[in-house]
Structures are given as structure tokens and as C-alpha cells.
């Protein structure tokens, strides 16, 4: 029969019409009273009594709640978690960056927890405006000092604001991605649950060298 295939196709469209929606209404989603109360964690009556203005909005379906896509822990975000105590200023990250956007200036005389004597870092600039988030700098870091971040919202009006300097690297919330850092995956660390890893002791290392190995590598080997 002519037109049979066409009707079959329309049937598929109808089937998809009632299926759950895949689209995520980022960044805000309109909710009703039930949805708003559920997000606030209280009963709808309670929600209305506590905040009549918001409750009225929710009744009219114009209240909004923030909504995000679920992301994988290996997501390569843009705010770079950096542990200063671990960094020796070797500039491996700067050498391995395909675009050459990491700038490091050091002077001798710093102290490093892993190796003792090392370089003190004066400048550590990462130009996010040209970064393509390939993660090669993280892969190159021999001391697990640099990690990819987990955030992606960095809209800006001025290009210079996109340069992450050393102060920002120090003060950033430390929510490292598990890209090339299996130690985070082993203990199921999820940067999107609000958890932070504040110092490098908590961060751990994947291949922890034993004290003997360290002595052999850095004391005996240098003689």
C-alpha cells in the first residue's frame, strides 16, 4: 500500500513523543511546586508556608532550579588544581604543552617536600584563552603536582582575565579531575560532589616511591 512506510514513520515519532526527554535544560529548569519542594528537601506545604513568594512562583511554574549535566570524573576542566609544595619548578608541563602557553619563572633556593632543595617559583601563568585542554601538561608532570580541574564555566569579557596566574592557582578550590591520576579513581573520588582535596598529602600518588628508592635516586645517584 502506498504510504504505509510513511505511517510507520509517524508511529515512531509518536512513540518518541511519550518517551523520557534526554535534553537537559542547562543552566536552569522551570519547576512546579512539587519539584521546587523536592529540591529544597521539604514538603510542599512547608515550602509554601516558609516562602510564600517562591511558592506562588512555583505554583505558576515560573520558579527555576539550577540544573547540570552529569559529568565523568575524568572530565578535563579549566581551573587546574596545583599543589605548590610538590612543584619543583622543573617546567616539564611548559615543555610538553603543544601550544606553549605555560610560563614559569623560577630562582634557586626553594624547598620541596619530596626532594629537599629545589627552585622557588616566581611566575606560573597558564593562558586558558589558548588552552585546548589536551591534558599533556598533567601527563608530563613527574611529581603529580598539576592536575586538570573539573569546572567549565569561565565566560569573560576581557581576554587577559583568562590567564590563570600563580595566586589563582593557589587559591582555586581544589577539585582535581582524575585524568591521568589513577589514585583518585582507586578511591572513587568524584569532583562533582563538592568534595575537595586541599593538600597534597590527601591527593596521594599513584606510584609512591619508597624511601630507599628515593635515597638511591636522589642521594646515591648524585654522587
Amino acid at each position: 500500500m502506498q504510504g504505509q512506510g510513511l505511517l510507520k514513520g509517524l508511529g515512531v515519532t509518536m512513540k518518541n513523543f511519550v518517551r523520557p526527554v534526554h535534553t537537559v535544560q542547562y543552566p536552569d529548569r522551570k519547576v512546579g511546586l512539587l519539584g521546587a519542594a523536592k529540591r529544597a528537601g521539604v514538603s510542599p506545604f512547608r515550602f509554601f508556608a516558609d516562602n510564600p513568594r517562591e511558592g506562588l512562583k512555583a505554583l505558576l511554574f515560573i520558579a527555576t532550579v539550577p540544573e547540570r549535566v552529569q559529568q565523568a570524573p575524568r572530565f578535563r576542566g579549566n581551573e587546574f588544581t596545583w599543589y605548590e609544595d610538590r612543584c619543583t619548578g622543573c617546567a616539564s608541563c611548559a615543555k610538553y604543552c603543544p601550544l606553549g602557553i605555560i610560563k614559569i619563572v623560577t630562582h634557586p633556593g626553594g624547598i620541596d617536600v619530596q626532594e629537599g632543595e629545589s627552585y622557588a617559583i616566581d611566575v606560573f601563568d597558564i593562558d586558558i584563552g589558548r588552552c585546548m585542554f589536551c591534558g599533556l601538561c598533567v601527563e608530563a608532570c613527574p611529581y603529580d603536582a598539576l592536575h586538570m580541574g573539573s569546572q567549565f564555566e569561565r565566560g569573560n569579557y576581557v581576554r587577559n582575565d583568562l590567564v590563570i596566574d600563580i595566586e589563582q592557582l593557589r587559591s582555586n578550590l581544589k577539585r582535581p579531575s582524575s585524568w591521568f591520576r589513577p589514585q583518585f579513581e582507586e578511591r572513587k573520588f568524584d569532583p562533582f560532589k563538592g568534595e575537595t582535596v586541599d593538600d597534597h598529602y590527601k591527593a596521594g600518588r599513584h606510584e609512591q616511591p619508597s624511601p630507599d628508592e628515593l635515597k638511591e635516586r636522589w642521594v646515591d645517584g648524585r654522587k
Binding site: 575524568r74 585542554f133 585524568w179 589513577p182
Partner: peptide, 27 residues
Amino acid sequence: LEMFEMLCGARITNSYLRPGGVFMDAP
């Protein structure tokens, strides 16, 4: 693409492969 994000943290510009294999085992 969501599976790629699980594997390598990116959806389009993967950079997942390295000489000799892949950069990291699948989660």
C-alpha cells in the same frame, strides 16, 4: 560521546590514544 567522556574526559577532542596503546585503562 558520554562514554568517551568516561574514557578520556573529552567528548570531541579526545586525544585518548598514545604510542603503544591508550593513555589510561577504562574506568
